[in-house]
Design a binder for these strands. Sequence first.
DNA 1: CATACGATGAGCCGCATGGGTGATGTGCTG
DNA 2: CAGCACATCACCCATGCGGCTCATCGTATG
Lengths: 225, 225
Amino acid sequence: MTIKVIIVDDQAMVRAGFAALLAAQSDIDVVGEAPDGREGVEVSRRSHPDVVLMDVRMPEMDGLEAARQLLDPPRGVTHRPKVLMLTTFDVDDYVYEALRAGASGFLLKDAPPADLISAVRVVAAGEALLAPSVTRRLIADFARQRPAPRRDGPALRRSGLTPRETEVLELIARGLSNQEIAESLVLAEQTVKTHIGRVLAKLGLRDRAQAVIFAYESGLVTPGQ
Amino acid sequence: MTIKVIIVDDQAMVRAGFAALLAAQSDIDVVGEAPDGREGVEVSRRSHPDVVLMDVRMPEMDGLEAARQLLDPPRGVTHRPKVLMLTTFDVDDYVYEALRAGASGFLLKDAPPADLISAVRVVAAGEALLAPSVTRRLIADFARQRPAPRRDGPALRRSGLTPRETEVLELIARGLSNQEIAESLVLAEQTVKTHIGRVLAKLGLRDRAQAVIFAYESGLVTPGQ
DNA sequence: CATACGATGAGCCGCATGGGTGATGTGCTG
DNA sequence: CAGCACATCACCCATGCGGCTCATCGTATG
């Protein structure tokens, strides 16, 4: 079973190079190419590739928007390829946007050819792969944003919340309903309600909306940055 | 300039295998070994390696705790190696703990030898590298925890909220009830409910708690005064 | 051993909240 | 002037949510 790939890049030379490189592999077929995001989406809808190699910067429609459309397809479109983003410069905005959109990988164009080939196989297999510099940033971001969720914040410390109550509060602040919190923590919904009742009482809050505010203001959760 | 590596694993056979594999590389020197985390930390402090290959599961002190000690050294210890975690099973708790501790990579022991070698070079260079399955999970986690609406302006601007609706959203994010919002804006409560209904529909939110989250994540309101 | 606290969960009750439909007035724009 | 977006408000309805009470169980803590 060969891996069907399409290449979306505005530079014809780049497309030709990648196509030659990949087509030389016995388990990879290049079944299409496109010079911009809009056409890339069309080609993908037509040829149903397993993997889409997508440049970030392109005219008409950039790679990020194209990736979003492929990964969050409209009603009726069932095909959902893996998207492997490519870029010349590793600008982090691109990376984060791409990963949010659901891309399976992010490589720099100056990566060794062998890396590109193995990357195609990896994402075709449902796994994911990032350029080392991107990995480093993602890890740094991950570690920074929750070095073991900060249970500090003056208001929070003096609040007298138990660990479990704090946990429930955090899920409230992530927008979950009582039922969802119960499922997430493997509890009866009634237990969740009890916890929430205590949280609201201890913090002097009226409802979950105010609880969300408290969670943000106390630093229990932080706006994504 | 060769890369100095130590190998920490409780299985002598694994140590021997990795050592042989790495020592065969002209740019890599294996300068030490240890059978558990405690000794691993000692050996690292003595031999100042560039990279520590660290098994997760070990007697005495597991790889996670050892990694923490190496990556967050006590006063007086200036040496801070890169840590590349190794595991047989990819249990995510381990992964997250290791990444929080500041590890530069996480590989499965069944990875191809070439991957291990290149991983050592990558982390020695200050970059990071994860096993594809780990990468996939990290990305999924990343995307899940901040999916759609975010980033001060764009999400808000593209949301299509009218000025009045935005005003109501802000008051929701201040913790006011519908009745209080109505009083604050000199409206009937029913009008407030209509506005809120439209806000929720336009933003794809379920309830006012999620609306509060959106307000914070979009920058409409910010923590701290 | 007695006590206290935390976690779990049940039952009941009332209201704020959210969804849907529809109507009116106003101001801007083609 | 016709059309449209926006703001305003009414009525109905189902229910998620929060308040209140009470009970069980395990683990510290004295």
